[in-house]
């Protein structure tokens, strides 16, 4: 039984996230949510529970279609595009509908909120360093290092 959706792992200079999911779709979703929860978006109409921002509705949507060279690069590209939209539009994405996920391509709809900034660290980029995805005891696990 999967216990966690994501957790922060110690790293000297940067931010390291360990992400879990029963399916690959869930893994990608939890990676997205983990990335944005880690930087603590500020939105006064949402509430906080266990240090996470909980929003009843996520009114903003962005459609994504990404093709990459393999599944690890796909995960980075997926998160990078969400980060780019976040910086461009002052938004945070705490949900995603994944319409199609293959080994090296994804079609998805990001669900988010407008924000007044972040309380947490600034993620500059999603890196390929110590990046891996594997299946352990029927749970998909990914490791991602973010430049902060």
């Amino acid at each position: 039984m999967q216990k966690k959706d994501f957790e922060l792992i110690s790293h000297t200079a940067d931010l390291q996230l360990r992400v879990y999911g029963i399916t690959k779709e869930e893994l990608f979703k939890n990676a997205l949510i983990g990335m944005f929860q880690a930087i603590k978006p500020i939105n006064s109409s949402c509430t906080h529970k266990n240090e996470r921002l909980i929003c009843k509705i996520l009114p903003i949507e962005h459609a994504l279609t990404i093709t990459s060279i393999d599944q690890e690069v796909l995960l980075v590209d997926f998160l990078s595009q969400a980060l780019t939209y976040s910086d461009m539009y002052n938004e945070a994405y705490l949900g995603v509908t994944i319409q199609k996920l293959e080994n090296s391509s994804i079609e998805a709809l990001l669900h988010g909120i407008t924000i007044d900034g972040f309380e947490g660290v600034e993620i500059k980029a999603v890196t390929y360093h110590d990046l891996w995805i594997k299946q352990e005891n029927n749970v998909w696990v990914a490791n991602i290092v973010f430049d902060i």
């Binding site: 990459s68 060279i69 590209d77 990078s80 780019t84 980029a125 890196t127 390929y128 360093h129």
Partner: peptide, 28 residues
């Protein structure tokens, strides 16, 4: 941040052209 992100991706996608062996993908 975006310039670096864009070109890391571009180089990863084109890496086969250059026959490069690297111990860490982030060194692309």
């Amino acid at each position: 941040h975006q310039v670096c992100t864009d070109y890391v991706k571009l180089m990863i996608n084109n890496a086969k052209k250059w026959n490069i062996t690297l111990p860490d993908r982030e060194l692309i």
